[in-house]
Amino acid sequence: MPTIDLETETGRKEALRRMLTIRQFDTTAGERFADGEIPGFVHLYIGEEAVGVGACSALEDDDYITSTHRGHGHCIAKGLDPKPMMAELYGKREGYCNGKGGSMHIADVDAGMLGANGIVGAGPPLGTGAALTIDRKGEDRVALSFLGDGAVAQGQVHSAANLAATWDLPVIFLVENNHYGEGTPVEEQHNVENLSATAGAYNVPGITVDGMDITAVNEAVTEARERARAGDGPTFIEAETYRFHGHFEGDEELYREDDEVERWEARDPIETFAQRLIDRGELTNEEYEALQSEVETTIEEALEYAQSAEEPAPEEAYDDMFAAEVPEITEFARRVRADGGDPDGGER
């Protein structure tokens, strides 16, 4: 069973709720970051919600995903809880990574979310690796790696795609083409019009879909998942989308024109999908407003949870780094607890 079945009315409403949750989460994260409450950087997913939710709803609960530096949307789409997510952004102990990862490193292996990633193009090797594990263990599940248009030109993405294709591994590469690699337009980075065309180099199929339409993304991932499960190997999907905010919060966006942003905003993936449900008679304006305020409450609660959560103690700095014991790390952890890690044993 897919996580969310878009062929049903209930599923479509749940998908809408998840997209709204992402929008509200990232709107709040952007505001709190601007106020200086959130450390580090935040890269918001606003505008791209149909890709994450369209893709993850086509997966099953025990499938894996790998994410990017713009990962909040993927986490929510995969079913992660906004409370520990927001706590992670705040660097709090209740966060998914005990507050040590922050916005770009949310992971929840139990939920199949193998991690956001600050390194461009680092997700696909993890996706191929997860798929290799699935293959070796003979499991019936798949891995999906999100990557951006800029990542398509990365060497490690080529390595990951080549091995996955050669070994027929059950992985899907989903390129979120939001038309800019940081501030560089996609046509100045690649010599093909459709990034899905790169699939031809690996002798696997590639398809380009409208990333502003959740149903198109969902359908493509559904078919790609079937190919993967059947042992037919990876599929490249390019979802054409757009980020409504800058590359990071605070980006002056000197590389794009306002009217371009407005043209894409007119195709808002949430508003257009909600309108389709309203037109179909499945959703009333009142129900839509109620759904929006439910989501606002969810995110307000997540924010309060994060704000009131505790910060990890400095002594915990070396905890949670490796699953297996690493003697040096154990020694560092002991020393930082004993004397603050000062080699002279002084007061910290």
Partner: peptide, 10 residues
């Protein structure tokens, strides 16, 4: 120019 949009290739 619309290339690569036919899901029937999958």
């Amino acid at each position: 120019p619309a290339a690569g949009r036919d899901i029937r290739r999958l």
